[in-house]
Nucleic acid binder design. Structure first.
Lengths: 110, 110
DNA sequence: ATATCCTACAACCAAATGGTTGTAGATCAG
DNA sequence: CTGATCTACAACCATTTGGTTGTAGGATAT
């Protein structure tokens, strides 16, 4: 495998971030509206610190942004990460379509 | 969070499977053509057993299928997992679009 | 001024992950 | 038949992950 190390670990982080139900829920929530970290923490049956870590994972994956406002940290959705993930999966879908086309061509030759 | 446990852990597995560069490479390869597990193992700087585990992770995520042929196990791409992942991300994209529409409506009211 | 709220971060823990080596059973080739 | 190949799986190991509690500091409200 000779792949760009930087972007590959970025993609690792992106899908890793999506692979947890709590984090996916956070992403949905903060895309619709604003939440402070403690506001999010109130929603789940886990400690504030645990939610804080989830938000940190999402931020590193560009799925969420944080902005300090007074004593609160406001969490909002970040479209960048989602767009990158979707683009990635579109590439895999394109490989499937090429394969289907290739098989169709072979059948047509007969 | 009151979510369907079964499908949620399925999604966990799906994105978890995508969060590793070797596994993503395997998915691309076996979508284009057929590979035995040892055929795949020859491509990477890791043991046969490690690749075997990666394939197992992909199989559980419905990103790949295995079929025994003689003494070999043939690995092929499985479109189901990819489709599910793409559908999921499309739902997140839809949330974004709703948000954009909502903001546009508010602006239009003024 | 002081108590409360929100956040950051360290230290710790159990379980999962990604890798290894080794063993054993099928299947194939000569 | 024998040896080589392919796979499955167990046992082990280091690191990461997802959670906890505790401490400390900055911002807010009374």
């Amino acid at each position: 495998m000779v792949v760009d190390q930087h972007s590959e670990t970025e993609i690792d982080r992106l899908f890793q971030a999506f692979s947890d139900a709590t984090r996916r829920d956070i992403v949905r929530r903060v895309t619709v509206g604003e939440y402070s970290v403690s506001g999010l923490a109130a929603l789940y049956a886990m400690s504030f610190a645990a939610v804080q870590k989830h938000v940190a994972v999402l931020e590193r994956a560009s799925l969420v942004t944080k902005e300090k406002r007074g004593r609160e940290q406001i969490v909002r959705g970040n479209h960048d990460g989602l767009q990158k993930a979707r683009q990635l999966l579109d590439e895999y879908e394109a490989i499937w379509r090429q394969r289907v086309d290739r098989i169709a061509d072979i059948l047509a030759e007969k």
